[in-house]
Amino acid sequence: MSLLREHWRKLALLIVGAGVAVVPLFVTGTDARYVLKVLSFVGINALIVLGLALLFGYAGQVSMGHAAFFGLGAYASAWVTKSLGLPWLVGLAAAVLLTAAAGILLALPSLRLKGHYLAMATLAFGEIMRIAFVEAKGVTGGPDGLSGIPYASIGPLSFDTPQMNYWLVWGVLVLAIWLAANIVNGRPGRSMRALHGSELGTMASGINITGIKVRVFTLSAVFAGVAGALYASVVGFVSPSTFSLHLSVILVAMAVLGGTRSLAGPLLAAVVLTLIPYADAILPGLSREVMTVIQEWEADVYGLVIIIVILFMPGGIAGALRGVFVRGGEAK
């Protein structure tokens, strides 16, 4: 039976994947550029939230500084490709290495301690990086940021149209989802589920809890760094105001709304919450006034969503969906 379910799952994923892949073919018309750009943003946010979902939903930790990893990745790749003129893949590698190193340096000391020191350490890290982005003018261009960042390219393949950018972002996202799903369904995922069940039991099984949490955090930092590299090449411009504490909090809101012990829930939440301020991209009929109101109240809604979800639907979207399916299954 579970084998059957596994097959259904693969089929569903295939259909969703194919659907995502063909989207650019159907987006045409005058604002196609805008719509595809918004959808690329969605994919970029989803990539960061995927990492946060591993961290929050499986490892039981929260990061208040993922905007900083996002920024680190963006600046690293922008600098390598624009200022050094090196290939895009080298920039991507720089983003990965830098965010991995920063992730390990933060996680090792704070996860050794019991409690939620990681949240505080990441908060401080995020603010330090924000200052660094402004002050390290030689690399980051200071408060004005860096512009004219080249498009991504891999060998002869250049991602210089909105369609290509969309495919690049979503292609990377699919790869990241595959990695994350393997982790969740494999040994590390089992260890983290064990931790939810019994901490003493987990230790008695000889499982290095800290080690797993450090790895999960580092991976989530790298996901954010890769998202940053994608962002830099898709937008062509980075500036420090993007990588704010505010963004970190909104990313956490997405992961929380998505729910624990799920990847699909947070991904869905990332898609929906990212689209809200750009609602006119998918609902072209929306008037300017409606959009203004939405953008005006967006942050309040995020704050409220965080509180309400934690209080009244701690499983988030994933928990709610699970509830529906389980009840449906039992009814049969």
């Binding site: 208040m64 939620h116 505010h246 909090v249 809101a253 309040d300 995020y302 965080i306 509180i307 701690p314």
Partner: peptide
Amino acid sequence: PLALIIITVGGSLLL
């Protein structure tokens, strides 16, 4: 604690 911390994060944004 994790839940409460996140609630205060949301509260900060909301306030």
